[in-house]
Design a protein around this nucleic acid. Structure first.
Lengths: 193, 193
DNA sequence: CGGGTGACTAAGCGCTTGCTTACTATCGCT
DNA sequence: AGCGATAGTAAGCAAGCGCTTAGTCACCCG
């Protein structure tokens, strides 16, 4: 009986941490907040996790890995830069809208990571930036994109996608509609079509 | 002698708070951090300010007022939506790049404000959003802009400008070059020219 | 010169923090 | 039945927190 209902206390603590960090920030959240939200005593957190920072690291790591995988998949589906950019921006924006609660932690709590964890995460972010830059670069070289500064344009594209996590709040726009519109904006930014 | 050198302890505390909040966040910064950075004892903070939250409120208020004034000035300079958008995005981005340290506090520490202060700041932000929305709307109505969703496009324009504060770090691009490029991107996003 | 005023600090108060310790309850296994 | 392992908690510790108190010092004006 308890085996099913009480299963995944570790994951429940993680989920509670995501929500709490998203609303109040890492330093604004106490271990007691997290434990209470997971329906447990403060000490229970340390049965399943080493520290509060480890929770943030876990959340950040998984979030970044998911985003990197999403970017790789979007680019792998075709060789055409237009198709690649469409998939990349569409999936990226859709993901950041749907998962804006966790994406907020992933993108805006980096400063709270321990130095070595921060370096590890920065490496993943660098790879994500590289994928976007590469699509823009190849589009320009192929003559299907036109932009005076591909690097700056790529930075703006990533920035536009990431920032969705900050301001997006469900009731307004459906994630799919937002993603579609952002694809259109991205194609214009790179001077396609 | 001391009249000149020691003048503006209040402002020195404010400046120290801006830097500290920007690097470590509001909750990650202690009143002792701020006082020490201003070269004073912890208690000195309370000679010049009521609380740590009041410091944040002051910083946030001044930052938002400056941004709102900047937006109004950019729009007031002309009646042509193309000229207005050029000035608006150019000045907005330039400001967020040059003042990225304070802009980080202004845009990313809103959750730490007291409820009434938060409401007051949100009202200013709403006005800023309104100015951008209005320029896009009038451009579309005048037939010089083309976009399937003016509201969503305006949201993206503000988002793009605000997010500069998050990622911008001097050594890379001169603020003026960044601003110029973002103007070009903005004009493409609204389908001008 | 004497007294009021404003800037500043040493010390510390009460509370909260992240985390630990010592313990109990429940389980699967032999 | 008895044992070890796992999951959980009540209580609390040391450190750090925002902020206050009580006082010192330099200064200005009569």
């Amino acid at each position: 009986m308890t085996a099913e209902v009480n299963a995944g206390a570790r994951e429940r603590l993680l989920a509670a941490a995501v929500t709490a960090f998203s609303v109040k920030g890492f330093h604004g959240t106490t271990t007691r907040d997290i434990a209470a939200a997971a329906g447990m005593s403060p000490a229970a957190l340390y049965v399943h996790h080493r520290s509060k920072e480890e929770l943030l690291h876990l959340i950040s790591r998984e979030g970044h890995d998911r985003t990197l995988a999403l970017c790789r998949a979007a680019v792998a589906a075709s060789d055409d830069p237009v198709v690649q950019l469409t998939a990349l921006v569409g999936d990226f924006v859709h993901h950041h809208a749907v998962n804006h609660v966790s994406a907020r932690v992933v993108n805006y709590e980096l400063a709270a990571l321990a130095p070595d964890h921060r370096a590890e995460i920065d490496a993943v972010r660098h790879q994500i930036d590289g994928i976007v830059r590469d699509v823009v670069d190849r589009g320009v070289r192929a003559g299907v994109f036109t932009t005076p500064d591909p690097l700056m344009t790529a930075a703006a594209l990533v920035s536009l996608g990431v920032d969705v996590a900050r301001w997006y709040d469900e009731p307004g726009w459906p994630p799919a509609a937002l993603a579609d519109h952002y694809v259109e904006l991205a194609l214009r930014m790179v001077g396609a079509g």
